[in-house]
C-alpha cells in the first residue's frame, strides 16, 4: 500500500539507481550495442577456428588474435583489447550521451530536476547507469569470450598459454580474464566520465559521441607524433595496451597500475566537471 511520507525531500537513492538501471537496460540502442559486443569474441573465435591453428595464415593479424589460436582462454582478453579500441568506448559514450544530453533533448531532465532528484544525486544516479552499461558491456565480451574460446577455439584442457611461454591453470587464467575485465571497466569509466561532462554541456547526444570518438582519434594521432612523446603520460589511450600485460608471466603490474591511475584522474576530473556543470545547468 502506498503511504505518504512528509519528511523526504528526495527519493531514496537506491530506488533512483534501480529505476535508472532498468531504464538503461531497456534502451534499444544499448541492447543492440551489447549484442554487437558479444559478437566480437564470436567473430574472432570462428575466424580462428576457420583459418586453423598457430602457424596458419594468421601471423599477419593482430598480435593478440594470433595468440588465441589453440589457446581459447586468451580469446576474452584479445576480444576485450580489440573492443576497447572503439566499440566499448562507443557504448559507454552512447550511454553517457543519453544520460544527460539525451534526457535534456527529450525534456525528461526537467522532470527529474522537478521531482526533485537533487542535482548532485542526479549525476550520481546517471553514474550508476553508465557504470551498469560499462560493466554489462565488458561482461558480455568477457563471458561470451570465455565460452566461445572454450567451445569454438578450444585449447590445452582448461589452461592458458601466456606470451611468456608459461602455462596457467584454469583458476589463474580466469583470474587474468577477470583482471583485464576489471581494468577495462575502469578505463571505460574514465571515458564515460569525460563523456558525461560533455553531455552535461549539451542537449545533442550526437555532440557527445562526436566529442568522444573525435577525442580518441586525436589521442591516437598525438600518440603517433614522435615529437609529442612528452604528451604520452597525459593521454588516456596511451595506457590501453596494458591489457596485454595480463598475458605475461610473471604478471607485470606497472602498466596496469599506471593506466588505472591515469583513468582515475580522468574519472575524477570528468565527474567534477559534470557535477559542477549540472549544479548550474538550466533544466
Amino acid at each position: 500500500m502506498t503511504t505518504v511520507e512528509q519528511a523526504r525531500t528526495t527519493a531514496p537513492f537506491g530506488r533512483l539507481a534501480a529505476a535508472e538501471v532498468r531504464w538503461v537496460l531497456r534502451r534499444p540502442r544499448t541492447l543492440v550495442l551489447f549484442a554487437l559486443l558479444a559478437l566480437v569474441p564470436v567473430a574472432i573465435g570462428v575466424g580462428i577456428a576457420l583459418t586453423g591453428g598457430p602457424g596458419g595464415g594468421d601471423r599477419d593479424g593482430p598480435g593478440l588474435v594470433a595468440a588465441v589460436a589453440g589457446n581459447g582462454l586468451v580469446l576474452p582478453i584479445a576480444a576485450l583489447s580489440l573492443a576497447l579500441a572503439l566499440l566499448l568506448p562507443l557504448t559507454v559514450a552512447t550511454a553517457a550521451a543519453d544520460a544527460l544530453a539525451g534526457e535534456a533533448a527529450h525534456s525528461t531532465l526537467r522532470g527529474l530536476l522537478l521531482a526533485p532528484v537533487g542535482r548532485t544525486r542526479l549525476v550520481a544516479m546517471k553514474g550508476v547507469g553508465v557504470l551498469t552499461v560499462a560493466v554489462v558491456a565488458v561482461l558480455a565480451v568477457a563471458v561470451v569470450g570465455v565460452v566461445t574460446g572454450w567451445i569454438v577455439v578450444g585449447g590445452p584442457s582448461g589452461t592458458m598459454i601466456t606470451l611468456s611461454g608459461t602455462t596457467l591453470g584454469l583458476g589463474e587464467a580466469l583470474g587474468r580474464v577477470a583482471l583485464v575485465a576489471g581494468w577495462t571497466i575502469v578505463q571505460l569509466l574514465a571515458v564515460a566520465a569525460v563523456a558525461l561532462a560533455v553531455s552535461a554541456f549539451t542537449e545533442h547526444p550526437l555532440v557527445v559521441l562526436a566529442a568522444v570518438l573525435g577525442g580518441l582519434i586525436v589521442f591516437g594521432v598525438l600518440a603517433a607524433i614522435p615529437s609529442l612523446e612528452w604528451l604520452q603520460p597525459l593521454l588516456l589511450t596511451s595506457g590501453w595496451g596494458a591489457g596485454t600485460d595480463a598475458l605475461r608471466d610473471p604478471l607485470p603490474l606497472d602498466g596496469l597500475a599506471s593506466s588505472t591511475l591515469r583513468a582515475l584522474v580522468y574519472l575524477v576530473l570528468g565527474a567534477a566537471v559534470t557535477v559542477w556543470r549540472m549544479r548550474r545547468r538550466d533544466g
Binding site: 612528452w230 597525459l234 599506471s258 591511475l261 591515469r262 582515475l264 584522474v265 575524477v268 567534477a272 559542477w276
Partner: peptide
C-alpha cells in the same frame, strides 16, 4: 577535484 587532477597529472607526468 581540481587538486586531485593536478596531483594526478603531476604523478603521471
Amino acid at each position: 577535484a581540481a587538486l586531485v587532477g593536478a596531483v594526478g597529472v603531476g604523478l603521471l607526468v
